[in-house]
Design a protein around this nucleic acid. Structure first.
Lengths: 168, 168
DNA sequence: ATATATTTTCAATAAGTTTTGAAAATTCAA
DNA sequence: TTGAATTTTCAAAACTTATTGAAAATATAT
């Protein structure tokens, strides 16, 4: 397979993959493009390579930067801004985990501990099932939360790397 | 907080939460409703409690069944079908992991190993960056894949439970 | 200061997804 | 069988989200 064909396939699949994970198609495609570019790219480069508008590129690069996945870089002697993606996939993964934990998991756990305090008689089966379900989800969520904290803190990939290899 | 208020909040938050995870709002809401119902519910019960159409309920319960999160149950002496959700949250999680792995991760890993075979000179920096990126993602993906297999096989929750507690 | 390059914003529009509801199909009892 | 209850289907409508593109804002060189 030729490089260009492979690039196109990767970008398009990464985009489709992203949509299953709450990331919009274009944002994932720009990320993919930057991941495989040896050098930083400008807005215009991205517009040209993906055939999308300037506004779209601007908006999605901004999001990628806010997710900590892409950096704005200045190249001396150049007037335009350049964008460059973090290439270490472990860092990418921990960054995504960190953000999603903060944006989604933590607020959900907070809500669940509120809901668990519902008033009513535990002998009422509706109350009982509600409290049990919420409690179970909260317990599970807290475990996941702790595990993710470990991953995030383990920025030396050898640690988790060896842990995971243990399971192979 | 009263049970009904708490129920409503849970259902609506679970629905919003689901949308961040590629699950549609209504499917997540039906799932939430069934999780907190002590007894199985019919299509009509779900329609009434969530104020949604019959077609919508039918479509989304079907998806929940195909994800293995909800069972159709027959109640003797009743003509209608009833739906009941798996209440053990560990089982719910492993079921979701299993399905998403099958539907998303496995195909992606298959594609990546194709793409890694791209032809061209490794001394060309474009080829090199492409191969390195794809390789890195594939390696990471394979590790994640192995870890998930362990989780899926560990259907006795004490195993993962203790593993996770280890990290607390 | 002025002109030019570049980035940002955002209202309008396009594209994509979900929901409805009524008709068709199926199931079941008598 | 027949007919009533129930479930399924799916085209059209409603809703949601993403994209465009041109105007406004900002930055930089001369």
């Amino acid at each position: 397979m030729k490089l260009n064909e492979a690039k196109t396939q990767f970008i398009s699949s990464w985009g489709a993959f992203g949509t299953h994970w709450g990331i919009n198609r274009t944002m994932a495609q720009i990320h993919a493009l930057l991941l495989i570019s040896p050098d930083p790219l400008t807005q215009d480069d991205i517009m040209d390579q993906l055939n999308i508008s300037r506004g779209n590129v601007n908006m999605n690069t901004r999001d990628l930067v806010s997710w900590g996945l892409v950096d704005r870089v200045l190249i001396q002697g150049e007037r335009k801004e350049f964008f460059s993606a973090e290439k270490d996939i472990w860092k990418v993964a921990t960054q995504i985990i960190k953000e999603r934990k903060k944006r989604e998991l933590d607020p959900m756990l907070k809500l669940l501990s509120q809901l668990e305090k519902v008033d009513g008689d535990k002998k009422d089966k509706h109350v009982k099932q509600f409290v049990d379900t919420i409690g179970g989800i909260r317990k599970f969520g807290n475990q996941a939360d702790s595990m993710l904290d470990v991953m995030i803190k383990a920025d030396e990939s050898w640690f988790l790397g060896s842990l995971l290899k243990f399971f192979k």
